[in-house]
Amino acid sequence: MQAALRIARSSARPLRATTVRCLATAASPAHAAAASASTTTARKHSVIPLSNVEAQWQTMAQEDKAIVHEQLEELQKKDWKDLSLDEKKAAYYVAFGPHGPRAPISPPGTTLKIFLSTMGLVGAAGVLMLAIRQFAPPPPKTISREWEEASNQRAIEQKMNPITGITSEGYSGKGFVVSK
């Protein structure tokens, strides 16, 4: 098995340089291969500036991406100390930048948007509650301090609940008074 794998590997060596690069950098290898087949002549003439790859990458055509891949591959064979910052950034962006499978799931500012809309909904619910309460009937007349104290007086007149309740000895509760 191992030996077979080694043989397959070594026979695949000529292809490897391009395909592996594509695998590692998440550009689809099929497209890149197709592009490299169709634009072998075009590639020799066109050189894509690497300084602005990050901005263009999303809208770049597959063939151009393949060209950039090839350029970077050649570039990275040099001494890395000779690379300019733009070239380094381009190499990093193409391989591991936030595009393709590494694109952020939600664009920046989504958290704030979700927070604000949630707060808006809560606020709308509060406004709705207040609006409905405007149309509610007034509370019953028996729920008032005056009425409850009168109920207490009446209970004492009638000697209501003399064992444990309002007219018992040493009673210290509030009787019927519940409202403040």
Binding site: Q76, K77, W80, Y92, V94, A95
Partner: peptide, 15 residues
């Protein structure tokens, strides 16, 4: 990473 000529992987290792 240097041997296989991939600068971005070297950066990624530190990341």
């Amino acid at each position: 990473a240097r041997r296989v000529n991939d600068y971005s992987t070297a950066v990624r290792i530190f990341e």
